[in-house]
Every structure is written in C-alpha cells, then in structure tokens.
C-alpha cells in the first residue's frame, strides 16, 4: 500500500510538471506575450516597443529558462530599466531590489505576481479557493445524499414504477448542463416577468453573507448536473447487488424488505458510487467555472476566467497547479478508498 501511494505521488508530480509546462508553453507563445505587453503597457505600442518591453522584463528569454525561474531552479531575472527602475520576477513592491532573493519560484513558495489583480498569486488563489470551497461544501452536502437516495430507491426494484420515474429524473438532470439549468432557474425564480421572486439572480453578496436566498440557486445548479450521473451509477450498482445470491438467501429466510436494503444491500452497493463521486470532482470544477460566471460569484472558477481572458501567466499556472492536484488527489483517494471499502481486496 505504501509503495502504491508513493508511486501514485510520483506520477502525480510528473503529471503536474508536464501540465504546467504545457500551460507555460501556451501562455508564452508570442501573440499571447504581445497581448500581455499591450494590456500592461500601452494598447498602441508599436511592434518594436512590444519587443523592447518584453525584452526588458525577461519575457524574451528561452522558454526552458523561464520555466526554470518559475519553478525556482534557475536564478530569477533582474534588469534595470533606462529610468533606473529595477524589474525582475523576484522584485516585489516594498522590498529593496538588493534584498530580493536570488531564487523565487514555486519551490521557494513564491507563486509570482498576478498581472491582472496586482497581487500575490498565492494570496489570490487561497482567497478564491476559500470561496469556492464553501460553495463546493454545500454542493456536496446537497448532491451526494440526494443522489444516493435517488439511486438506491430506483435500484431497489428494477423496472418498478419508482425506478422508472426516478431514472427519468436522473436522465433529465444529466442532459441539462449548468448553463441551461442555471438560466432556467434564474428565469423562473428570480425574474420579474414570472413573478416568483424567491431567490436572487446573483450570488455576489453570498461571498460575505451567504443566505439561503442568494446561495441556493448556484448550489442547486451545480448539484443537479452531477447528481444524475451519480444516481445512475448508484442505481446500476444497487440493481446488481439486489440480484446477488446473499440477498435471495436473506429474502428466503424471511428478512423484511427494509432490513434487506438497509443492512445487506446498501453497504455493498455504495462501494462503486464512492469512486464515482470522487471522480466527479474534475467535472464539478467545470461546473464551478460556469456557475461562478453565471451567478457572478468571485471564486476559483471566476479567477480562472479572469486569468485566462487576460493571459495572466503566473495566475493561470497557479490555478492549473491547484486544479491538477485536485483532480489527481481525488483519483488517488478514490483508488485507496476502493481498496479500503471493498473487503475482498482489503483482506487479500
């Protein structure tokens, strides 16, 4: 087990390195740098000025060196401009250039400066992650139990009335992406034309003061899309368990139906959905980006859109590292959890 986890960590690091390099490569293509120069400097810069601006700030170095600097294995770039201003990727406002450290990359715990928000990337990412974490927490609280209940109820008796109606419900939710369900919810529950002003159409105020009124719709929108899939997986797993020999034995010896479901079937039926729930995280991340844009909730996904829209290299890298780790970490947990939950594998 220890070796397995260690190997997975190795793969995880390798994946993160590859991915950040891909992001680095794509954000450092010349047209992207040109855009960065024009948004940071001046929209009407000539090609020569752009080249100069990039040269002065170290963007024209070879790609691998820049990547090394970001990682913190190559010494940071410094340059003194003609007006005496010292620029470089280790220079921070408030610290004298002479005191600036030589290496400043991810390995030193420095995530760089965001060019959009003019702030430390680490601070931005952690603040936005906090907002999103809160959203995700409520999404999970709503999504997982309801998905499991729907799946178990549908899977108890395959082909029954209940199964049909719940399965239809879960198919409809999987067919409704967040930007469709969100728009429909906003139209029904918040607009003045329908008149049911039950909720608020934006969740901006939910960042400081989350209430049921301004926070429920985003949570519902994300949960619904993920719910259908988990419910269908749970149903499949439950129907499989319900046809197993030990359930038949339990029935024949006269155990009541609720008891069969609660004591015999449920535990075995919940192994597969656990994996599915964990693997659902990367998808939830997508949902988060859409919903945060739709409801104007300034979390991680919103930061991603801002960073990508403005080619904010350092912030994008920080965000991709975090999301890659979320994805790979949930995969790891799902693997370990599967082994742990399944007695057949655990004991052998």
């Amino acid at each position: 087990m220890g070796l397995f986890i260690l190997r997975r960590f190795g793969v995880m690091l390798l994946t993160a390195l590859c991915l950040t390099f891909v992001v680095f490569f794509l954000t450092n293509l010349y047209p992207n740098l040109e855009k960065l120069a024009k948004t940071q400097g001046n929209q009407r810069m000539s090609d020569e000025q752009v080249a100069n601006w990039l040269e002065n700030r170290g963007y024209s170095q070879p790609l691998l060196i820049k990547y090394g600097q970001w990682l913190g294995v190559a010494p940071g770039f410094t340059n003194t401009l003609s007006d005496g201003q010292v620029v470089g990727n280790c220079i921070r406002p408030g610290i004298a250039p002479e005191d600036a450290p030589n290496f400043c990359g991810v390995l030193q715990g420095e995530w760089g400066q965001s060019t959009v928000f003019k702030d430390d990337v680490g601070a931005i990412v952690s603040k936005r992650l906090g907002n999103t974490g809160y959203l995700m927490f409520w999404v999970l609280v709503l999504m997982v139990p309801s998905a499991l209940i729907v799946g178990v109820l549908a899977g108890m008796k395959e082909g029954s009335i209940l199964d049909r109606s719940l399965s239809t419900f879960s198919i409809i939710t999987t067919a409704t992406p967040e930007y469709v369900s969100g728009v429909i919810f906003i139209a029904i529950f918040t607009s003045s034309t329908v008149g049911l002003k039950w909720f608020k159409g934006t969740a901006t105020s939910a960042m400081d003061n989350p209430t049921f009124e301004n926070f429920f719709l985003p949570v519902l929108t994300i949960s619904l899309y993920g719910m259908g899939y988990i419910a269908r997986m749970t149903r499949a797993s439950m129907t499989e368990v319900m046809t197993a020999q030990y359930i038949r034995t339990a029935r024949l010896k006269g155990v009541s139906f609720p008891n069969i479901v609660m004591k015999h079937a449920l535990r075995n039926a919940l192994i597969a959905p656990f994996t599915v729930i964990m693997l659902q995280f990367p998808w939830l991340l997508n949902g988060v980006v859409i919903v945060e844009t739709l409801f104007n909730y300034k979390g991680f996904g919103w930061a991603l859109v801002q960073a990508a829209g403005n080619n904010d290299i350092q912030l994008l890298l920080g965000i991709s590292v975090v999301s890659v780790f979320v994805v790979l970490f949930t995969q790891l947990i799902s693997d370990i959890g599967y082994v742990y939950l399944n007695p057949r594998i655990r004991i052998s």
Binding site: T15, L285, G309
Partner: peptide
C-alpha cells in the same frame, strides 16, 4: 490522463483564443 487532468474550460481558454489561433497551434 494528462489531458483528462486538465479542467476542460482551462484547456478551451488556452486553445481557443484569437492569439493562439494566430500562432497556428
């Protein structure tokens, strides 16, 4: 797995911008 580990939207934002189209990627 590398491609799957990318959040789809980040990938879209990296691939489908006018600047990237200009580079011919």
């Amino acid at each position: 797995n590398l491609i799957l580990a990318f959040p789809v939207i980040l990938l879209f934002y990296l691939l489908v911008t006018p600047e990237i189209i200009a580079t011919g990627v």
